[in-house]
Nucleic acid binder design. Sequence first.
DNA 1: GACTGTGAAAGGGTTCACAGCT
DNA 2: AGCTGTGAACCCTTTCACAGTC
Lengths: 256, 256
Amino acid sequence: MATGRTHRPATRSRGIPEATVARLPLYLRALTGLSERSVPTVSSEELAAAAGVNSAKLRKDFSYLGSYGTRGVGYDVEYLVYQISRELGLTQDWPVVIVGIGNLGAALANYGGFASRGFRVAALIDADPAMAGTPVAGIAVQHSDELEKIISDNGVSIGVISTPAGAAQQVCDRLVAAGVTSILNFAPTVLSVPDGVDVRKVDLSIELQILAFHEQRKAGEEAAGNNAEQADAPPLRATPASRKGPDGDVPAVMPA
Amino acid sequence: MATGRTHRPATRSRGIPEATVARLPLYLRALTGLSERSVPTVSSEELAAAAGVNSAKLRKDFSYLGSYGTRGVGYDVEYLVYQISRELGLTQDWPVVIVGIGNLGAALANYGGFASRGFRVAALIDADPAMAGTPVAGIAVQHSDELEKIISDNGVSIGVISTPAGAAQQVCDRLVAAGVTSILNFAPTVLSVPDGVDVRKVDLSIELQILAFHEQRKAGEEAAGNNAEQADAPPLRATPASRKGPDGDVPAVMPA
DNA sequence: GACTGTGAAAGGGTTCACAGCT
DNA sequence: AGCTGTGAACCCTTTCACAGTC
C-alpha cells in the first residue's frame, strides 16, 4: 500500500451516470475519426473539442470507466476506442428490427450509421401486405404476422418503431411480448412498457418546437424592455368561477 | 418578508428551465388529444399520465408559466393549449427549410407532424442538380445555389440539415451566414456555430448505442454476482511505457 | 374534499482547481 | 512541464409534502 491508496470505493464499472453514457457514443465517433487518421494519442482537450464538450467533463466521464489515460501524455486512441466500444456493448452484434417501413422506416433502413458499429438490420416489418417481399435497402420487407417468429428466430432484443402514431403502442406490446427489451420509438406517442424495458424516443416535432421557443426568445429580445410575449395575450382566465368566454372573448384554440 | 404574499419574484415568464421547455411539447400533444375528445378540464394527475411524467413535475413545470390551473378542479384544456402554444411560439408561423433531400430528408418533408403546429416547409434544398425540380411531398426541390436567396426571401430562421456528414458543416455555415439562427441537425457531426445560434441534434446511431449499453447491462445481470463486463476485458493497458498488445491480445478496433 | 402551487429537501450533473503521476 | 484523475463547490432538476384555494 505504498501508493496513494484509496482503493477505489467499489464504484468502478457499476453505476456509470446516464449523462456520461449518453456522451460515450460522441467520444467514440470522434475517436474513430482520429483512428482513421492514424493519430496515436489525444489529450482530453483535443478530444473534447472534437466531440463538442469541455475537457473537464470528458475527463470526469472517462474516470467513471477507469483510469485509461496517461498523465502528461493523454489517451491512447485505439485503446480508448476499444474500451468505450466494450463499455457500450458494441463488441457484440446487435440484431435490430425496424417496424413500419414508410418514408422514415426506409430512411432508417438505408442509414449507414445503423449498419456500422455492431448493429445489424435483421428484418424490416410492415403491416401492409402489399409491401411484403419488396426489397428496401437490400432487405425484403416481411409482413407483421411474422413479427414474433422473426424476433425469436433472430434473438432480437432491440426494436425500432417507425409506424404511424396509432399503431405504435400495439406494435410495442407485440415486440415486448416477443422478447424485445429495448425500443427506439420514432412515433409521436408515449409508449407504456413494463419495467425492465427501455424506451428511447426521437421526436422531430418536439425538437422543432424547442427550437421555436428559443427562436421566439431571440426575436423578443430585439424589442426588449417590455414583456412582449405576455403583453399581447388575450385577458381571459380559465377560472370557471370568474370569466370564461361569457364575454365573447375568444377561447383561442389552436387549429390542431 | 413576513411570509404570505411573495409578490412573484420577477421570475415570471423569464427563465423557464430548459428541462421544462423540453417537456412543454409533450404536454401540448397530450392536451391536443384531450381537446379533440372535447375534454374540458384535466387534473395534473391525468395529464401527467397522458404525457408520461409524474404529476409533481408537471405542476412545477406549469408553475413556471404562471398560475393557469384552478385548485380543486384542474386545468382548462383549451386555455392551457393556448398558453403553452404561445409560450413555445407556435401561435406564429415558422417557415423551415430542409437541406439534403435523401431518404431522410424526404421522410422529413413528408412527416405530417412538421406541417401541423406552426411549422411550414418553405423549401427543400439539395446539392444534386438532377434533383432540382423533382417534387417531394408536393414541393419542388431546389438547388443549393439558391439557398441564400430562399432563406432571405422567405424569412427563414429555422433550418433542418439532413445531408451526409461531410456536407453538414458547410451547409450549416451557409445557413447561418444567410440568417438562420436555429438548426436541427440529423447529420452525425458536431456542428460549430457562432454564439446566438441554437443547434439541436438528432442522432439515430447514438440512440441505438445508448440502448445497447443498457441492453448489455441487462444481459450481464442474469449472470450476476461477479462483475461480468469488466471480467472478460483483456488485461492490456494503454500506458505506452508498459504493455500494449504484446501478448497477442486483440487491440480490437471497430470496423468503422 | 379535491387539487393546485410551491417552499424545502434530495439527487444528479457540471465546473473548478489542484494534487499526483509520467 | 504537461496532462490526467478527482474531491469539492456549484448549479440545475426532481421529488416531497403541505399550505392555500376553490
